[in-house]
Amino acid sequence: MLTILFDGIAYGMLLFVLACGLSVTLGLMNFINLAHGAFAMAGGYIALYLVNHMGMPFALGLVAAFFSAAAIGALLERTLYVHVYNKSPLDQVLFTIGLVFMAVAAVNYTVGSTQQFITIPASLQGQIQVAGIGMSKYRLMIIAICGVITLLLQLALMRSRLGSQLRAAVDDQRVARGLGINVGAVFAGTFAIGSGLAGLGGALGAEILGLDPTFPLKYMIYFLIVVTIGGTSSITAPFMASILLGIADVAGKYYMPKLGAFVIYTVMIVVLILRPQGLFAPSRPR
């Protein structure tokens, strides 16, 4: 029972790191990035390659996953995404689905379709017993890393200049430009960090979620659920949503294996029915 709770929390925190970038692009930049999972997959495969085949230490692999995914994100943002920000939601959807398909096929072509796992160091394998609860060391590490990231994000958004610039840029691009804020750079920076975190999440999660070319499609709905339930107005709400989703998913699979992901999808739809407006577009007075 408590082990399930523990696993659920670890899983939820992982989901949060994976999805928080999406929450930012969606909530602040108003962009529907269905290809978000592709960045996670990129990070995962890069870490896997460096660790498994180049013998890089696991921790360094994680760092590399973050920076490479961020670099890919920044590159794509500047070259492609920037042309799509002002297009209709349908265009954004078509465009990002297209990217997902390309990513899936490209990975399929280069590394094959079999599921792969990253080699984790021996020191992170196995369990430790705390107060009679079996805890996987690896999951403990995930909780630690993701917890730190969440705190940093929270601080960054509240304190740093990027945070306030981002909010200004989103509220009114023209005014922000007038204030001398480089809106393009702010968006690119945000996008890169979001992608980087996804990449890090992908690398961290390779052990738990597995890694295969359909990763972006398989987990797209999870990311969307996090954003849907959590909303996009803060960091804490999606965080709570991720944890809940993680626990619900792990518990659901454990207690009601027959129903599978059914529970989660139902929850998402119910939330969407109850709060369709408040989730993405704050209802504003006319």
Binding site: S88, P89, T228, A281
Partner: peptide
């Protein structure tokens, strides 16, 4: 919005 519609239909 369009976005919630996307998600609901997908869901």
């Amino acid at each position: 919005t369009d976005l919630t519609r996307l998600m609901v239909t997908l869901g």
